[in-house]
Amino acid sequence: MTIRERLRKFRWWHELGLVILIISLLVAAGTLMPRFLDIKSQLLLSRHIWEMAILALGMTLIIITGGIDLSVGAAMGLCAVAFGMTFQYTGSLALSCVAAMLTGGLGGAVNGVLISKIKVHPLIVTLATYAAFRGIAEGLSQGVSYSQFGEAFSQIARGKWFGVPIPAYLFLALAVGFAVFLSKTPTGRFLYAIGHNERAARFSGIRVDRIKFWLYATSGMLAGLATVIYISRFNTAKADAGTGFELDVITAVVVGGTSIFGGRGNIAGTVLGLLLIHETRLFVGRYWQVDELKSIIIGALLIASILLYRILSPKKGRE
């Protein structure tokens, strides 16, 4: 194969771009602030991202099918309240974790039913459940915060195995699982088909509704899992858990190269997107110590990355 042919077959331009961006960010950060590259502190501060990272896996799959889930942050609030109330009544942490996951799954299933059976647009369904989940969480808990889950429980988010934070193992396992599912299983490939052309996918016998239902239910369950880590990290279960997460997660997925219209994207891109956003936020926060700058830069990064991709993309007018 000639170089030219190899280049033409190369499918990872977006990921390559992200890697270059991340490396240049790290180089710049390391020059300006040598201690920024210290591995130990990087590992420690990585705990700021794990909940978001777990949510981003489900979100990637959903966006690949052309959908969206705005309710993940609010679902975390609901899961946190379920966790706190279960703990209050039973005193069992294991049961509380199960309750959080089940609540998340149930919330996701509600989204799934409305989207796949009643055929409401995902943006509208999850905009509605975004308000409803958070509201129900506030009403049920009356705004109270549940606390005192013990030192051992906080080790889930703060503990380490072989110097690496425990949530990292969990995330890696999940990420590999999702990546294999997406690229190697027929159902995973169907997601792209749905995102490209849902009607065609339907006609070719793909059980679109069932797949969609399970995607949103999974996203809800992941919200439950993220909530457990979140509660462990802050030792607090409250209705305001996960506020604003939905936008951060969508930003990471989109920066990672998943098309918001569906049909394109992968887990590797999402992981890189998460890394870029996490490191950017960390660097801006640690170097300038101006919180406002973070949102300005992340917002600009989101627009600029997609703009750049659009301008440079060899296939124009793909929509």
């Binding site: 406002e292 949102s295 917002g299």
Partner: peptide, 17 residues
């Protein structure tokens, strides 16, 4: 050719900051 949801999501955060 940037999808409007992405442009306005970016502006939502950036303009507030």
């Amino acid at each position: 050719k940037v999808p409007s949801i992405i442009v306005t999501l970016g502006l939502l955060t950036a303009l507030r900051g």
